[in-house]
């Protein structure tokens, strides 16, 4: 499967601070990809680099085989809904659609109008008067009606209430089903990621800790509980993600190629949230990474 985003040793520096460094990544096409990680891991920087809003300091990044924002053609193929879903406060909803129509050669006006009508947005209303959820939906409409091959969303639902969040994701996923576009979205909300995404990338300290199809990841990870033992003595093919011990008991999160047969272990499945937290935990040598988990 071809990669929609391909990054090699990608780095971005602001002054003396590296927002992203040594990031190597392949995001396959045809997925809704969830990019998760603690604050400051470089998610926003990575997505902005992919959208061509930033230029890399080191390394390189290819999106759909081209350099991000290298021209109008490349811009047309990639949609980007930025954090806080900005819109022009003084423009009406209809004017935003007109903006989209004027600036995008592949604009799907019927789709845009239909979406606005179904959302119940008044085309004459100014964007500044819309609720956060409505504004996000307007920004999403612009992103979808542009008919990109890849849609990138940076924390699109972070500021929304649960109902607006659900409606936003419904709209996004419906468009994904209808137009077969690839989606990469970053989110703090693991429950949303679990529903919406079928591919997961965990980014910690700008490094990819784990990436893969969600179902494969869930199938390959287990929580083992049993009498205390040295995690280094596990059979090959079982990699320890995290380990914690009491005097008598060991609890391990392992990634295993096959089923766990050792009868000494009590084997439990992990939820996506457990899995992500396990990787964030293991990656946090320099203090505990903060991950918001909202349900």
């Amino acid at each position: 499967m071809s990669a929609v985003i391909r990054a090699r040793d990608l780095g971005k520096r602001y002054g003396r601070r590296w927002a992203l460094s040594d990031c190597t990544l392949d995001v396959p096409a045809g997925h809704v990809v969830g990019l998760v990680g603690p604050n400051g891991a470089g998610k926003t920087t990575l997505l902005n680099l992919a959208a061509g809003q930033l230029t890399p300091t080191t390394g390189d990044i290819e999106v759909l085989g081209g350099r991000p924002a290298s021209g109008a053609g490349q811009l047309a193929r990639v949609g980007f809904v930025a954090q806080d879903t900005p819109t022009y406060a003084g423009f009406t909803v209809a004017e935003h659609l007109r903006l989209g129509a004027r600036l995008n050669p592949r604009w799907d006006d019927a789709l845009a109008r239909d979406r606005i009508a179904r959302l119940g947005l008044d085309p004459g209303a100014r964007a500044g008067k819309l609720s956060g959820g409505q504004r996000a939906q307007l920004a999403l409409t612009l992103g979808i009606a542009k008919r990109p091959e890849l849609l990138i969303l940076d924390e699109p639902v972070a500021a929304l209430d649960p109902l607006a969040r659900r409606e936003f994701l419904q709209g996004l996923l419906e468009a994904t089903a209808e137009h077969g576009l690839s989606v990469v979205l970053s989110s703090h909300l693991l429950s949303d990621v679990e529903r919406a995404c079928d591919y997961l990338i965990v980014l910690v300290d700008s490094r990819v800790r784990v990436a893969g199809e969600v179902d494969d990841l869930l199938a390959a990870h287990h929580r083992l509980t049993g009498p205390r033992r040295d995690p280094a003595r596990l059979p090959s093919g079982q990699d320890v993600v995290t380990a914690s011990h009491t005097d008598r008991q060991s609890t391990l999160v392992v990634r295993a190629d096959g089923p766990i047969h050792d009868p000494a272990w009590t084997v439990a499945r992990l939820t996506l949230e457990d899995l992500v937290l396990a990787y964030l935990d293991s990656g946090g040598q320099t203090g505990r990474p903060a991950l918001e988990v909202l349900r």
Partner: peptide
Amino acid sequence: EAGTHRLVWNQSVTRGR
């Protein structure tokens, strides 16, 4: 200030144009 540059620069028009 309003962040709208991130909206308009992601339409199919280059920043330069």
